[in-house]
Design a protein around this nucleic acid. Structure first.
Lengths: 338, 338
DNA sequence: TAACAATAGTTAACCGCTTAACTATAAGCA
DNA sequence: TGCTTATAGTTAAGCGGTTAACTATTGTTA
C-alpha cells in the first residue's frame, strides 16, 4: 500500500504539497498538481482513512443505531426503508454507514455501544428511538456526539412522522365509511411513543364525533403478525358485531385479516381492516390493505440531512413529516349501510 | 476526551504500561493493574479507535457489501435476515459492521466502494454476490482484502445455500403430490447463480421422472410480487389446466396466489403454489406458503465465522448449507386425485 | 527601487496508540 | 557468590496523514 510519502517522493515534492493538492487547499501550481496526480495514478495511491481520521479528528463514518428490541430491526420492513433513505443521503455526502444494534438492558445500552460512542470512531449518529426505556440517546448527549433521532424524543434534533395526524386520518376514514362498531389492536401504552401519538389521534377524532374511544373494544399486540391473529380473535370474542378493526401497524392488520378469513368471514364485506405503515407487501396483500403511509425513506433521508447540517455547524429545525392515508380494498362501508 | 497519556500521568506510570494493562500483554503486577484501572475509571477513558487502528493496522470493522441492484437490499426480507446472522456473530467478536451498498456499473462497482476497499479502513468483507455482472469481489481479490462471499462464486471463500437440493426437493414434493401439469415462474437465466442452481435441481428431478422440464410452461419475473402476479396471469393464459405453480421465490409466489384468487380460483384446491425462501411473512400468508427455507441467518453467521477464521490466519473450508422444505397449505394434491 | 503582499512550497510537530528495544530489579541456580 | 534468566516497567520510534509556522520566490505599489 503506497503512502503519502511514496507519492511525494515519486512526484518530487513534499508530503505537505501532496496533501494540499489532494485536499484542494490553495497555493500550488497546475504543474505540481499534474505531477502529484500522475504519481497518485501511477502508484494507485488511496489515502489511509485511519490515519486521516486520527489527524483530522473526523472519520467520515456515521452510525445508524437501531436498538435491538423485539429483534425489530431484522423483521420490520419499515426499519429497512428508513435505512434506505439514510444510505442514499450518506452515500451522496461521501459518508460511510456503521450499523449498530445495541442491546438494551435495564441500565441503558450495552457496553460495546457506549464505547463505540466515545471512541471517536464516528462523526455522528442517527438513532431510531421511539422506546421509552433505556434510551440510546443519553450517552450521546453526555459525550456531545452529534446526533439526530428518528422518533419522539425531547431535547434532541428529531425527525418525526406525524403519527397524531395519521391516527386522526385513520379514524376519520373509518368513521366516514359509516362504521360504528370498531375494534382496536394496538400495543401496550408507553411501549412506543409513536403508537401513543396514533392513539391520541384516534381518540381526538372519536371524541369530535361524540364517541368515547374507551368504549371501543381494545386489545394489545406486539407488532407481530401472530399477535394480530390473536388480537382479532380476542376482539371478535369480546364483540361479535364489530364491523371494522383498526390495527396500529400493518403486520398486526395482516394477522387480523388472516384470522377473520380463517374464521369464515370476509374482508371487507363482513369486517373492514385498516393498518398503519404501508409496508412493501401491504399493496399486494390480499385484500390490499388500507393503511397509512409514513414515508419511511424520507424519514431516513431527512434525518441524514439534519445530521449533516449539524456536522456543518448549522442549526437545523426539527422535522415533522406528513403522512398519507392509502385507501385500499381492505376497508369498505359496513354491510348494514349497503 | 482523556487520552492514554492522561491515564498514564494520572496513574503515575508510562503510556506503555497502560497500553499493556489494557491489552492484557504480560509483565505488570496486580498492583499497577489496579492503579491503571482506577485511573481509567476516574477519567472515563475510552481508547481512540482511529489511533488504535492506525497503530495496529486493524480497524475491527468489517464491511457488509450488498450490491445495489433492483434495490434488493432494502426490499428483500431475506437479505435482512442474512444481515441479522452477520450482526450476531460480529457483535460477539467485538467487530463493528460497515454497510456498503455499491452501485454497479458496466465496468465494476463504483469509485466510492473501490476506495473504501483500499483505504485500510476495513479488516474484511462479507459480500452478497450471486450476480454475474460487475463483481464486487474483483477489487477485493486484487487488493488482497480478506473476504467471504455469500453466493456461488468461484475462487473465493464462500457460503452457499444448497439451491440445487432446494430445487430438487421442491419438484420432488410437487410431483409426489400427484401434479403433472406444472407451471414455473423463475427469472431470466444467468441473472442470478442461485436461481440457476434451483432450476437445475428442478430439471434433474423432472428428468428422473421421465419429464422434460422444457415442456413445462415457464415465464420470467424479477423477484417482485407484481412480477408474480403478471407471471401467474401469463402462465394461466398459456395453459388453463395447470394444477401447480412453482415460483422460485416467495414474493413471486405471493403475487401468483393473489392473481389466482382474484381470478376466482382457490389455492390450493384449484391450483397449488410453492415458493422459495421462507421469508418471515410466508408462514402467516393466506394460505400459508409451501416453500423452501434456506436458513438465511445461518448463512450470515457462517459467512462471519469464515471471515473471522481467515482473519485469524486459518484456512476455512467453503460451506454448503442444507435447506429445508416447508410444506404448508398452499400446495396440496390436485383435485383430479381427490 | 525599496517595502510589502501574495503565492508556492517545505519542514516538522502533532493526532493517540502500539511495540520493539532497552533498563532495572528480583529470582534461580551451579 | 556470581551469572543467567524472568519479570516489571520505561523510552522512543513508528503508524500515515494534516497543518501551523516557516522560507523562498514573484508581483505590486508608492
Amino acid at each position: 500500500m503506497p503512502t503519502l510519502q511514496d507519492v511525494a517522493r515519486h512526484a518530487g515534492v513534499s508530503t505537505a504539497t501532496v496533501s494540499k493538492v489532494l485536499s484542494n487547499t490553495p497555493y500550488f501550481t497546475e504543474e505540481t498538481r499534474l505531477k502529484v496526480m500522475q504519481a497518485v495514478e501511477e502508484l494507485g495511491y488511496v489515502p489511509n482513512l485511519a490515519a486521516r481520521a486520527l489527524s483530522r479528528g473526523k472519520t467520515q463514518i456515521i452510525a445508524v443505531v437501531f436498538p435491538y428490541i423485539y429483534d425489530a430491526i431484522f423483521t420490520d420492513p419499515l426499519v429497512l426503508r428508513i435505512l434506505e433513505g439514510i444510505e442514499a443521503e450518506a452515500t451522496q455526502h461521501g459518508y460511510n454507514l456503521l450499523l449498530s444494534t445495541p442491546r438494551l438492558t435495564a441500565d441503558g445500552p450495552d457496553a460495546h455501544y457506549r464505547r463505540l460512542v466515545q471512541s471517536g470512531y464516528i462523526d455522528g449518529v442517527i438513532a431510531l428511538d421511539n422506546v421509552p426505556v433505556a434510551s440510546v440517546i443519553k450517552p450521546l448527549r453526555k459525550k456531545k456526539v452529534p446526533h439526530v433521532v428518528i422518533g419522539y424524543h425531547e431535547s434532541a434534533y428529531s425527525v418525526c412522522s406525524d403519527d397524531y395526524s395519521g391516527g386522526r386520518q385513520l379514524m376519520e376514514y373509518i368513521l366516514s365509511l359509516g362504521h360504528t362498531r370498531i375494534g382496536i389492536i394496538t400495543v401496550p401504552i408507553d411501549m412506543n411513543y409513536a403508537l401513543n401519538e396514533r392513539v391520541r389521534g384516534l381518540q381526538a377524532v372519536a371524541a369530535e364525533h361524540g364517541i368515547d374511544m374507551a368504549r371501543m373494544p381494545t386489545v394489545y399486540g406486539d407488532f407481530s403478525v401472530v399477535s394480530g391473529i390473536r388480537g382479532a380473535a380476542e376482539l371478535l370474542e369480546l364483540d361479535q358485531g364489530l364491523t371494522a378493526l383498526i390495527c396500529l401497524n400493518d403486520r398486526m392488520a395482516m394477522g387480523a385479516i388472516q384470522h377473520i378469513v380463517q374464521s369464515g368471514r370476509r374482508v371487507p364485506q363482513d369486517i373492514s381492516v385498516a393498518g398503519y405503515d404501508d409496508i412493501p407487501t401491504a399493496a399486494t396483500f390480499s385484500p390490499p390493505l388500507t393503511t397509512v403511509n409514513q414515508h419511511a425513506p424520507e424519514q431516513g433521508q431527512m434525518a441524514a440531512q439534519l445530521l449533516f447540517a449539524i456536522l456543518n455547524h448549522k442549526t437545523p429545525t426539527p422535522v415533522l413529516l406528513p403522512v398519507t392515508l392509502i385507501p385500499r380494498s381492505s376497508a369498505a362501508a359496513p354491510r348494514s349501510l349497503e
